[in-house]
Structures are given as structure tokens and as C-alpha cells.
Design a protein around this nucleic acid. Structure first.
Lengths: 202, 202
DNA sequence: TTATTTTTCATACGTATGTATTTATATTAG
DNA sequence: CTAATATAAATACATACGTATGAAAAATAA
């Protein structure tokens, strides 16, 4: 992933020993387990056994930490989303892929919840990029088509289920989670068939 | 509402001048406009022109303030909910009423969002009462009935729309909001009539 | 009047947080 | 070896927060 020699061939200085991924794991766990208010530089440091200064060096500022949480979740989501939806999905297909991605990936949604919560604590002004992301999820839908309206409905239900569960507002076990998505997926047609054929149905 | 003579006939002491409702209004505005992190005793004091000590006296602690926010929203919601659903609504009717209550009341949902955000700051352990409230919203649904499954779907979509809009994650204007609820309501039939009725008042 | 009570204000204090700064460590270049 | 450099840790510091505390204000009661 990230190597000290990715810029130039030279690599003087003390070798990197702090694992950013590990810090981000800890940050996510703190938010999901103890609330967004518990996310402090010091808490991340203590959870990972390094010092406050080390965390500071790794991310610069707390904002940097939150941004990094977002970016990591974003890229893992994008990867999954593209694997499901392909390169340039039609609007409804994009929704279908979003539903499927949320449905499938527990870890990614956990990370999303932690990132969102951490960001929500801060001022709404910092949510511009998040708003843009959400807008892009539903872009291109044509509300004069009933299929597109069903897709929007599926999107709303997906986000509702996600937030209710991962913000800890409802106890939704895995069985119920899967059962909910049966109905949500029914709104957008069969579960997405991977980009190049190979339809998988239930 | 609250009078100084509601305990005993006697009423010594300086008369109450701090308006708790006004403080709660300010608290909600702070959360919705500047994020949950901005909700401090001092911010509420400054927004209302009284002193930090005054806010402290009115709510005891910050937790007390948040609880008061919740309670105020809860009672206003209950009032609206009961007005729509009646005394002992059947499970699906309760969902229908919840959808309708969320659909209608902008102010109440704004208050709900502020309360939820303020509570989400704190640790998940403090969310017990909120979880209980959400559970009661969907209590009694029978997932072997397709009508009940549609009701659950409507519930998820309602909460999704609510959070996306009032947490500031999506820009949803009033026109789009109403349009979304057309589809949500279609899932549970007409607001206060059997699934094929059509009378509706606003 | 004085005493009493309730509410509001003013101040102080302990703690926690984010960050700036400084110091220590470990590696490479020459 | 020494110098340079990147990384990590340690320390310091200003600020902000919640709350404890006590004084001041405004009413009633005697």
C-alpha cells in the first residue's frame, strides 16, 4: 500500500512503524462503541498503544483523522460499488448496486456509520462533500418513471435501515437485516447481476 | 404551564423569569445550525442573553438539557401521533400514523433531529430509551403478512428520508419531501382510511 | 422593618482537549 | 565515523467545558 519509497528512490530517516490502518480501526471502534464524543486523539493513542504525538504525526490534526476515516470508507465502498455496478451504471442500476453494497458489506457500513457520526458532530458546513456523495447516489433518476420512483424508495429504505442499525437506534440482528433487504430489493428488481452477465437469482 | 404556586399555596422567592422553552428553542437551533458539538451550556446562555449559571439552574446539568429536549419533542410527537392514530392503533395503523406524523410536521422532526444528534454524541449506552421508542414504533408487526412487511418498508423509508434531510446529509426541498412521501404512503395505503379509501385532509 | 425563600448572576476551579514545540530515535548518504 | 532526515515520543500550553460555590436580586411573610 503505502511505502516510504513511493515518491523517490531515496528513503532516509527513521522507518515508519505506525500503522495508520490500525489507528483508523481503533478510531472506528471508539466511535461505534463509545460515541463520537469519545473520539479524541488521546483515546486513539491509548487504544493503539502509541503516544498522542504519534497520532498527531500520522494525521496532522483531528480533522485529518476524520477525513482519513471518510476516505478509507469511501474507497472501500467505491470498490465494492463498482464491482457490482460496473463503470457507468444507469441511474436505477446505481441504486440497485447501492442497495446491494449496503446489504452485503457489514464492515464497510460500520465504517460508514463511524465516519458519518464523527462528521455529524462537527458543523454542518463540513458536510459538503458528504452531501455531494449522497446526491450522486440518486443522480439521474426520472421521477416520471415508476421504476425510478421505486428506486428512490429503495434508496430511502436502505439508508433508513443503515442508520437505524449502525447508529444504534434500533436493535436489528443479522436475520432481520437480511429479511428487510429482501423487501427493499424487491423494489428495484432482482439482486444485481454482475457487470458481464452471470445472473444470479434466488 | 408551570407556575410557582403549583406545589403549595405559598410562593415566596424571586419570580421565575427564565423561559425554559426559549432555551430549548435555542438549543435546537444551535444543534441544527452548527452541529451537536456546538451545543454547550455557554452557547445556549449566549444565544438567549442569560448567563451560564442561569442555564445551569434551569436544567441542572447538560444531560438534563438534552433530556429536556427529548421530552419536549416526545410529547409534541405523541400528541400528533395520537391525534392521527387514536388510542390503541393496530400495528399497521401505527406505522401509517408515524409516516403521516413525520410527513406533516416539519417543526417536530427538526426537534427530533436535534435531540437525536445531541444524544448520539454521548455514548450508545445512553440511547436505551431511544431504542425503546423505536422498537415501540414497529412493535406487533407480523412479517408473514405482506401488508405488515410493506409497513416496515414504509417505516424504514420514512426514517431514511427524515435522517437524510434533517441531519443535513441531503438537500431535500419541501416539494421533493412531499413527493417522496407520496410513494411511502402508497406502501401503507391511504393515511387514515382502509387501503382503498381516498379521503384525505391536510 | 427583618427574615426567609427562590431565582439569577458572577466567579472560580478542575479537567480534558487539540496542537505547538521540543527532544529522542532510527535509518540512509557520504 | 558524521551529517542529514524522517519518524516517534514527550512536554508544554492555551483554551474550552461542565459544574461547584457563593453572592446578589426580588419576591413573600412576620
Amino acid at each position: 500500500m503505502k511505502n516510504k519509497v513511493d515518491e523517490q528512490g531515496r528513503s532516509p530517516g527513521r522507518p515508519r512503524t505506525i500503522d495508520r490502518e490500525h489507528l483508523l480501526d481503533a478510531a472506528e471502534e471508539i466511535v461505534t462503541k463509545h460515541g463520537a464524543a469519545a473520539l479524541t486523539i488521546d483515546a486513539v493513542a491509548k487504544a493503539t498503544g502509541i503516544t498522542k504525538g504519534g497520532v498527531q504525526y500520522a494525521f496532522g490534526t483531528k480533522e485529518g483523522l476524520i477525513v482519513a476515516m471518510f476516505e478509507r470508507w469511501g474507497s472501500s465502498y467505491d470498490e465494492l460499488f463498482r464491482a457490482i455496478a460496473g463503470a457507468n451504471p444507469a441511474p436505477v442500476t446505481a441504486i440497485r448496486a447501492h442497495v446491494e453494497a449496503t446489504h452485503r458489506s457489514d464492515e464497510a457500513t460500520q465504517a460508514k456509520a463511524a465516519s458519518l457520526l464523527a462528521a455529524l458532530i462537527r458543523s454542518p458546513e463540513d458536510l459538503a462533500s458528504t452531501r455531494a456523495w449522497y446526491s450522486s447516489r440518486t443522480a439521474g433518476l426520472d421521477m416520471s418513471k415508476s421504476e425510478d420512483r421505486r428506486a428512490r424508495l429503495a434508496f430511502l429504505a436502505t439508508e433508513g435501515a443503515f442508520m437505524l442499525r449502525f447508529f444504534g437506534l434500533m436493535d436489528i440482528d443479522q436475520t432481520e437485516w437480511l429479511d428487510m433487504f429482501k423487501d427493499i430489493q424487491a423494489l428495484v428488481g432482482e439482486p444485481l447481476s454482475p457487470p458481464r452477465g452471470s445472473s444470479r437469482k434466488h
